[in-house]
Computed example of a mutant assay.
Amino acid sequence: MVPFAGASELHFRLARGLDLINNWNAGLYGRYPLSDVLSVMLRQVEARNAVLYRFGSNRLETVAAARHSLDQAKPKVSSGNMLKYVQKYHAAKIEPGRIFRLSELQTEPDFYQTATQREWAAQHDLVENHLIILSASEGQYDVIEIAYALLPEDCPEFPFSLLSTALANGWENRVSGLVSRQVRNFGRGRSTGPLQETDILGPYNPAGLTRAERRICQLLVGGDTAKDIADTLNLSVATIRTHLHNTYAKTGADGQVQLVALIAAGMGRSE
């Protein structure tokens, strides 16, 4: 799952995609808050803001939301306007895994003078918004909205539609009661920053680390350098740094010092 020495950009995209699905499924089984999962997702797809919500009977409930770790502002919740527009003009196309892109909707004559158009005209720091349908049945919709400050790059060999389909498939198999619990926790402000005060190396593996990533973390917290770890595991330093980069994305750490601090702070909390 982790790229090897000399890996191509496609290999890196595949690795990040698999990591994302691993994190998503772990969150759907209640191992840690979905807001933390969205935080990891933002770093992996290089987006600004993400919000997961349920909409039905003209009522919107925020399940989870996250802002990119480099942005100090609080996560923005959705107005639901984009979903309402899609409901009105593209109802027949709504299905789990489907992605609706703001840039495509903006080309439609019906888009002008709508609440969605007015809302996004005021978002000067954002250039794209994706609406991912997780489920749709009997007037109830579960969706993820992802906002971008830079135009996302799609890869023909590994399109984002494959990931959105996997996200929807995982959502269908989520643990019972997950949405209601996450809605309550979000409303009470209980979801904290990514994996803070969490036993990252504990038995539940909340960050979804691979076996290699966990081993590297163990050696790192023991005081080994990247070169020491490379020698111990008979790998290149570049490969170790790739593992570390993926670990930073999953845990929210901004470098080795913070990663070691997060691991040390969470030790024993899962016992």
Rank of each mutant, 00 (worst) to 15 (best):
D254R: 09
V127E: 04
Q140D: 02
R48L: 00
A168L: 02
T225W: 07
A207M: 07
G177I: 03
S39T: 10
S137E: 09
S180C: 00
D125S: 11
L20Y: 08
D199E: 09
L259Q: 04
H130Y: 15
Y32D: 14
L42A: 02
K74E: 15
V63W: 00
V221L: 02
R188G: 14
G80N: 06
L163A: 05
L151S: 13
A7F: 01
R190L: 15
N49I: 03
A136L: 06
L201Q: 01
L220G: 12
R31L: 14
P33H: 11
V183C: 03
G56C: 00
A115N: 13
A64R: 01
S191Y: 11
Y141V: 10
L233N: 14
Q196S: 09
F55S: 08
I263K: 01
S35I: 04
A238G: 09
A122N: 00
V257N: 10
W171S: 11
V86S: 03
T232R: 15
L134F: 13
T225Y: 07
N246G: 11
T114W: 07
I144L: 12
E157V: 02
F160W: 09
K74I: 06
I229H: 01
V127A: 07
R188L: 15
S39Y: 04
E157T: 04
E153D: 10
I200P: 04
K74A: 14
L150M: 10
V51G: 02
Y29H: 09
R211W: 13
L14H: 07
Q44D: 13
D110N: 08
A207E: 02
V260A: 13
T198I: 12
V183L: 00
P203A: 00
G268S: 10
S79L: 07
E108N: 07
V2I: 15
F4L: 12
L150H: 12
P96R: 04
R118Q: 08
A64Y: 02
S8G: 04
V221F: 00
L233A: 06
S39R: 14
E271Q: 03
K76R: 14
C155W: 09
N81L: 08
R184E: 13
S8T: 15
G80F: 06
F158E: 10
R54Y: 03
L83M: 10
L151E: 15
L20V: 08
V86L: 05
G187V: 04
G193R: 13
D71W: 00
K76S: 10
F186L: 10
A73S: 15
G27Q: 09
H90N: 09
D19R: 14
L167I: 01
Y148M: 02
S191L: 11
F158W: 09
L70Y: 05
L60F: 00
Y89N: 12
L42Y: 06
A26G: 12
Y32I: 03
Y141A: 05
A15S: 11
T165N: 06
R98L: 02
P194A: 14
S137K: 14
S39K: 12
D231P: 04
I146D: 05
L70D: 10
G6M: 02
A207K: 04
Q258W: 03
L10D: 03
T210V: 01
E9M: 11
